[in-house]
Write a protein that binds this DNA or RNA. Sequence first.
DNA 1: GGCTTTCCGGACCGGTCGGTCCACAACGAC
DNA 2: GTCGTTGTGGACCGACCGGTCCGGAAAGCC
Lengths: 207, 207
Amino acid sequence: MAGTDTTAQVGRPREFDHEAVLDTVVDLFWDRGFGATSMGDIVARTGLSKSSLYGAFGSKDALFETALDRYLADHRRTIDEILTNGSKGLDDIDVFFSGVEEQAGLTERRGCLAVNTATERRTTEPALVQMSARHRDAMRDGFTAALTRAVDLGVVDADQIDDLSNLLVTTALGLAVMIGGGAPTDEVLAHLASARASLRSGRGSAE
Amino acid sequence: MAGTDTTAQVGRPREFDHEAVLDTVVDLFWDRGFGATSMGDIVARTGLSKSSLYGAFGSKDALFETALDRYLADHRRTIDEILTNGSKGLDDIDVFFSGVEEQAGLTERRGCLAVNTATERRTTEPALVQMSARHRDAMRDGFTAALTRAVDLGVVDADQIDDLSNLLVTTALGLAVMIGGGAPTDEVLAHLASARASLRSGRGSAE
DNA sequence: GGCTTTCCGGACCGGTCGGTCCACAACGAC
DNA sequence: GTCGTTGTGGACCGACCGGTCCGGAAAGCC
């Protein structure tokens, strides 16, 4: 309505960086989940006071939703960079999954914030269901784009695009839940390797 | 130590059915997750008093672990029946996934209790990580058994067994998290169909 | 300088949480 | 019957939860 980013600026200015705090909050929820993270934890980690937190974000639910939104936007940016705007077809998909590989290798394996919390809060927060659905769509679109390039390169049959896109989405979710559930690194890597192998195998054209 | 199932039977006998209560508890945790299910909820639904509950199961954590154990044992029985002791190769895998199909069609889609809670309680309950891992192993073994029969039938190449088993585990987890996260029925079914299609396609021998 | 507006720290709130305790009820053994 | 043992209901507990509120601090505007 009124100025989009002039923000009138009257009264005492905010002392904290809105985005940085949100990053910290994402981190916290990502580590422990929604239920196991208390507002007290958030106060402690961000260094802010409750009133600042509630003044800026409204409620724990709203804060979580804002944080998740930020997380998903980041993730979607990655999808666009690698899958949508890539140039190498199947190799782009490999690059995308190397992000998963990285997650699997960390000592603190957290998986995906959206996956971890989607099941936990499904019943209480219908907005989350929508956000997850939109995110799956984004992933699927990304895979479809990369596979379309692969078709142009003659590595994939055109009529397999839809099935493969779906399968890749399912695979990404499966790997995420494995990592988020604490599966050992080599088990995750083995599953990832199998997924990559079966993506390359059984195509119409030669390798 | 002393009698394994004679149980001495002295004092007032327990008035409730241990297994039936556990089933109810599984149901409750499955519906709402661990954090969102309070002991009060459990008292209300089972009709038992807190003291009976705590007397029989110890704590909320222990109760959950017992319930999950029961859930997983049930699931493992299904795996054994269909996958390990089946006779039809790939068709057995189809039958197994028709259980997923059923879950997807229910109005109240809950997915898999283990998947839903694995991410939620990973940090607080290391036993859960072990249970999930063992369950993934059981699934993988089941798929491997079914695929081995498929090799005998000439429908699958022997050197693909491991990769396909891994991929099927990942797929099952991915579908479970989709359902548990509230994805619409047709989206789940589409992903399931794609998984089935790619299992059948690109094999060495003709269909 | 005053004045207004906003932000901040921390005390505070009612409610709910997981868990305990105890008086009493219901059985087997004798 | 009495006794020993165990199960049961419900009152109760301290801790912690998400959330509110208020007095003071820090800025822009005049």
